[in-house]
């Protein structure tokens, strides 16, 4: 993990870290990287991909439309609404 990679991750995650935080993250990630590298020593040839840690599968539901909530109920906790829209800070300049 180098500073360029960290900067890229910051951008992708829309974070602005201080220099101190960056230093801490670099140390943290370098340590984690080493731990993860240890895994590559294991021979995984012919091992089927594990799709889930538990041997369970999903339940599915029938394709049926149900309306349980009104718009007003859903927007009760919204910071801002206009004409039934959720209103958020402008995205694209």
């Amino acid at each position: 993990m180098d500073i360029a990679t960290l900067k890229r991750l910051e951008k992708l995650n829309q974070l602005a870290l201080t220099e101190e935080q960056e230093k801490a993250f670099l140390e943290f990630f370098s340590k984690k990287e080493k731990e993860a590298e240890a895994l590559s020593e294991i021979d995984t040839e012919n091992v089927e991909r594990m799709v889930h840690v538990m041997p369970i599968m999903t339940v599915v539901r029938e394709d049926k439309e149900i309306k349980n909530f009104t718009r007003d109920e859903l927007q009760q906790s919204a910071p801002e609404t206009t004409d039934g829209y959720w209103q958020v800070p402008r995205l694209v300049e």
Partner: peptide, 11 residues
């Protein structure tokens, strides 16, 4: 929907 009047985005 980008709302120029209030300079916000409507979802």
């Amino acid at each position: 929907v980008h709302d120029d009047w209030t300079n916000t985005t409507l979802v």
